[in-house]
Design a binder for these strands. Structure first.
Length: 691
DNA sequence: AATCCTGGAGTTTTT
DNA sequence: CTCCAGGATT
């Protein structure tokens, strides 16, 4: 097993008193306020161990929920390391995986059929766009407003029906109407979106007492990580599952709330005390991760925000190195500097590539960095992001898989119907679309209908029918238990490789893109095998899933879990590159945060939208990832939209304590001054910290 | 009616 | 870079 940077630290043998209290308190609902680096994952995993070993609770009655796939994997691995065979049946998943599980078991109540599709953001946007287009409205701003508003309603468990006649404005009434149609569309496509994975289970549990009882009896103890990231709907799910009982432990830190933009409601931390009588609150304030200069800077920065709870982080790790603040002429020089620094430090000390992380605000910032790291032959790994799934070749193959598993998935059908070219163009699809709307069925479903032949030209109808026949054959192969053969046959039939080569700028590029497809196929093959083994070793009928193996794989793919895991297993010893958001929960000896500038961090949209506090928390999360060494870099100019623009250092820089910093490359007096200050400030800092 | 080509515009964060 | 629209071409 490869060690991940986040798990390099061996599980602590000794817990401090607060941690021990948190592990052992099981008599009622518990809130653990865990500052950055205070060992919260240890507390959660040790608590699971305590529940199973000391309280003799069967592992299958314990469920732990987190937000990201990465966090779930880490927690699962650490719980298994502690419990060994006793971990059997333990459920560790993301909120969305848990929701998916509930949805799958209660399919009829969800109004979906087996094989339903999970739509990603792009798919739902495309559907909304189509709905708006049919209204004759194409303003793209309305599309954005619509999507955000609908997502907001869904994450607050607001149904279209409950909005009837309650709109505050004409536009809101309009969006509510689109929302209703959107929901109907999803149902008819046998699809759900990401928000539905939480919203539908909540609705089912609210409306069906017996189902609620069943799930409550299945989960006797629920642990929730990163609680500040829950939205209203997710909190409702937690409340439903826990019910009147006391088996709940949530862990959170309001200073690390960085998902408000997608509906996270850190107030849920406060709400907990109102909803759960006798809630016990334990604070973890000792930081085991960072040196004091880093911690002091993080504390100073976050002091500029309001807090739900006050806490003071401290550490026994000593002063440590000064935080390097490096300004460079442009973004090119910035990445050059990062690459050189990594190489220098690696040679200068006993460091591995995996000891370094480069954190960025936006995914696009990784591009230049990747080029530079490649040029310097530094092995790196970009985690998270959408890069792989954003590739057209991957989207195509995924869409084929989805149509195979769920013919009614219009979003996927539209993507592949004419890729490669089948001479099925817009006018044919328009006619098919009109017909399907009138018969209230999916596009694919309309192909088989009798009346369609009259509305289409004979040629067009023939092309659609032959596509249908082809899919039916493939589906037979899948049902025969040979999904991999079906996939290979599918891609061979359409000569997807040839099509890629032809449609790429060069043969070499085309071949590279087909390599991506092969990687996807290989991953699917592995996962199918894994499932096969699991199914054979599984005698617990409670856990057997109704869905087919291919559907299970597809779901895992849509939740972005599977490939991440594979990449992680291969990321042996590489520099970690990721967004600040993706870095939460991880730690690295050496951390670089690049683009520490106004407009970028805080991001220009946040400056306009007046959500600086959340940006500050984002910077806080980034800073607190560093164990020993932190470097903030910024460019004086940066190419944006074609021309060079001047960039100012982030306002957050001024909020950091000067004596902890070592400024370089600013070309002003502060450079030398701060260096001097750093040298003589050590004693002062020690004195200040002791107070 | 389908496909190919060109130019223009816009980049936050994620399950 | 990558998505889109719209116009020219087959």
């Amino acid at each position: 097993m490869n060690q991940q940077p986040g798990s390099q630290r061996a599980p602590k043998q000794q817990l401090n008193p607060a941690q021990r209290d948190a592990v052992r308190y099981v008599d009622g609902p518990l809130l653990v306020l865990a500052g950055a680096g205070s060992g919260k994952t240890s507390v959660i995993t040790r608590k699971i161990q305590y529940l199973v070993r000391e309280c003799e609770m069967p592992a299958r009655q314990v469920t732990a929920v987190t937000f990201t796939n990465k966090a779930a994997r880490e927690m699962r691995a650490r719980a298994r390391a502690l419990l060994g065979d006793d971990a059997k049946g333990l459920q560790v998943s993301t909120f969305h995986q848990l929701g998916l599980k509930i949805l799958q078991r209660e399919l009829p109540l969800a109004g979906r059929k087996s094989g339903f599709s999970i739509l990603d953001d792009q798919d739902s946007t495309a559907i909304l766009k189509d709905l708006l287009l049919r209204d004759g409205d194409i303003a793209s701003t309305l599309l954005d407003i619509c999507r955000n508003q609908i997502s907001h309603w869904k994450s607050h468990a607001v149904s279209p029906a409950s909005l009837q006649g309650k709109a505050d404005s004409v536009q809101e009434a309009r969006i509510a109407e689109v929302y209703a149609r959107y929901e109907r569309a999803l149902a008819s496509y046998n699809a759900v979106d990401f928000d539905d994975l939480i919203a539908i289970p909540v609705r089912i549990l609210a409306e069906h007492e017996e189902v609620l009882k069943r799930w409550q009896s299945r989960i006797r103890y629920l642990l929730v990580d990163e609680y500040q990231d829950t939205n209203v709907c997710q909190y409702m799910l937690v409340q439903q599952l826990v019910g009147e009982r006391s088996g709940l432990c949530v862990v959170g830190d309001d200073d690390q709330s960085i998902y408000a933009w997608r509906g996270a409601n850190p107030e849920n931390l406060k709400q907990l005390a109102k909803d759960f009588k006798g809630l016990k609150v334990i604070k973890l304030e000792q930081n085991y991760r960072s040196t004091n200069r880093i911690l002091q800077s993080a504390n100073a920065l976050i002091a500029n925000n309001d807090h739900l709870f006050e806490k003071k982080l401290w550490s026994e790790k000593g002063q440590g190195d000064a935080i390097v603040v490096q300004q460079l002429p442009d973004e090119e020089a910035e990445t050059e500097y990062i690459g050189d620094e990594i190489l220098h430090r690696k040679i200068g000390s006993n460091l591995q590539f995996r000891d370094f992380a480069v954190l960025v605000r936006g995914n696009h910032q990784t591009r230049l960095l990747e080029l530079k790291l490649q040029a310097k032959q530094i092995p790196y790994q970009v985690t998270g992001g959408t890069s792989f799934f954003a590739r057209n070749e991957i989207k195509d193959v995924m869409a084929y898989l989805r149509v195979l598993a769920n013919p009614d998935d219009d979003a996927a059908f539209l993507r592949i119907v004419n890729v490669p070219r089948r001479k099925i163009g817009v006018s044919t699809l328009e006619a098919l679309g009109d017909y399907s709307k009138s018969r209230e069925c999916s596009l694919y479903g309309a192909i088989g209908e009798m009346g369609l032949a009259q509305t289409l030209s004979e040629q067009a109808h023939k092309r659609l029918s032959s596509l249908d026949g082809w899919f039916q054959n493939l589906r037979r192969v899948v049902d025969n238990g040979e999904p991999m053969r079906a996939l290979q046959e599918m891609l061979d039939d359409i000569d997807y490789r040839g099509w890629l080569v032809q449609n790429s700028s060069s043969t070499a590029v085309g071949e590279r893109r087909y390599e991506n497809v092969n990687f996807l196929l290989e991953s699917i093959r592995n996962e199918l095998q894994k499932q096969n083994q699991a199914a054979q070793g599984n005698t617990n009928s409670f856990e057997i899933d109704a869905e087919s193996p291919l559907e299970a794989v597809l779901n895992k793919l849509m939740l972005r879990d599977m490939l991440e895991q594979q990449a992680e297993e291969e990321a042996d010893n590489k520099v970690q590159v990721m967004t600040l958001h993706a870095s939460k929960g991880l730690e690295f000896p050496h951390v670089f945060i690049i683009g520490f500038e106004e407009q970028l961090l805080p991001h220009r949209n946040s400056i306009e939208g007046d959500t600086i506090d959340e940006e500050r928390r984002l910077a806080y999360v980034g800073i607190t990832r560093a164990q020993q060494h932190l470097t903030l870099t910024m460019a004086r100019t940066r190419k944006q939209f074609g021309d060079q623009q001047r960039c100012a250092p982030s306002r957050f820089l001024e909020e950091l304590p000067v004596e902890a910093l070592q400024r370089k490359g600013f070309g002003d007096k502060m450079d030398a001054a701060s260096n001097e200050a750093t040298g003589r400030a050590t004693l002062d800092n020690l004195r200040a910290l002791l107070e």
